[in-house]
């Protein structure tokens, strides 16, 4: 009897230690990134680094404002394309899908998650870029936009990222919806609500935390995606107002130039990573705050 109590205590300790692993990992990542990035930021000047819009490392000008804006643009684009389609598709998967075709479809979405980003990149480059270029030319001839752009653009990157975050959103949202007890749904139907009304007014609100988690994961993937984006976004380090023009993202900046950078340039790239990291922190904190607000309601 005593040994059993001991085992209970011991295992509780093991669970606790395991739970500490993620805290430890974040702490380590913080320490190593900040130790390598902050000195460079100091040398360049915090304000100059964050608000400068000229990035010309060869002439010692390091301003990443255009990249910050770029990352925001493509992430917003990815959300606009990916989130509605993702959530509606998971509604289809959870509530509408005939049993016979469910398995292949489910396998297919899982497959989508396993396709390496390089493939998405080439797919974008060969298939989507020419389409967007033609689209730009049509708008240009119609006089809607001033420049047609060459296809490597914010729009292209948003479309591809929108596709890339689909499996993340579908996976989490669907399992969250399935976890809602079925008597919620049956009860709503019994009260005379239509199937759609029951889904959107009862099940989705009940599965809210899972849905939000899926969207946050998706946003994380969109901001962090590198290999596919650098192939299709054009990577021009400047601010633009048109979604048909190219842009460079923070991640793109790191991967593209890390290879040949030395000295201050290299440190400035690690500092770019730090900025990216701080962004993620801000997003997570605001989501956590939002959630707390919602819980208190």
């Amino acid at each position: 009897m005593k040994s059993k109590a001991w085992t209970e205590k011991f295992m509780q300790g093991v669970f606790f230690v395991a739970a500490c692993a993620s805290v430890l990992a974040v702490a380590l990542i913080c320490v190593f990134l900040f130790a390598n990035g902050i000195p460079a930021m100091k040398e360049i000047g915090f304000i100059k680094f964050l608000t400068g819009d000229v990035w010309r490392p060869s002439s010692e000008q390091f301003g990443i404002l255009s990249m910050i804006v770029g990352s925001l643009y493509v992430t917003a684009g990815a959300i606009i394309f990916g989130v509605p389609i993702g959530i509606l598709t998971s509604v289809f998967m959870a509530m509408y899908c005939p049993k016979r075709i469910y398995k292949p479809l489910k396998a297919a979405t899982e497959l989508l998650a396993g396709i390496p980003s390089v493939i998405y990149g080439f797919f974008g480059l060969v298939v989507v870029v020419p389409l967007v270029r033609d689209f730009g030319n049509v708008l240009y001839r119609a006089g809607i936009v001033e420049k047609a752009g060459d296809g490597n653009s914010i729009l292209t990157a948003s479309l591809i990222l929108g596709i890339m975050i689909l499996p993340t959103i579908i996976g989490t949202t669907e399992s969250a919806m399935r976890a809602v007890p079925s008597h919620y749904y049956q009860g709503s139907l019994a009260l005379g609500a239509t199937k759609e009304r029951s889904i959107f007014r009862v099940i989705i609100p009940a599965a809210k935390s899972g849905v939000v988690a899926g969207i946050v994961l998706g946003i994380g993937r969109a901001i962090g995606e590198t290999m596919a984006v650098i192939m299709i976004a054009g990577n021009q380090p400047r601010i633009t107002g048109s979604i048909l023009q190219g842009i460079r993202t923070l991640t793109g900046n790191i991967v593209i130039e890390m290879g040949y950078a030395t000295g201050l340039h290299r440190e400035a790239l690690i500092a770019t990573g730090v900025v990216l990291f701080v962004f993620i922190l801000i997003i997570n904190f605001s989501v956590a705050l939002l959630k707390r607000g919602a819980d208190h309601e």
Binding site: A19, C20, S22, V23, A25, V26, L28, I29, F32, L33, N36, V216, L217, I219, G220, I223, G224, E225, T226, T251, I254, V255, I270, G273, L276, F277, I280, L281, I283, N284, F285, V287, A288
Partner: peptide, 26 residues
């Protein structure tokens, strides 16, 4: 628990290139 939850969400949001940099440094 809140600290753990926050760090987990932070981890899931860190871009893979940053993991690469960290892995190389550490």
């Amino acid at each position: 628990v809140e600290v753990i939850r926050l760090t987990t969400e932070t981890l899931s949001g860190i871009p893979s290139i940053v993991y690469g940099l960290f892995g190389m440094l550490f």
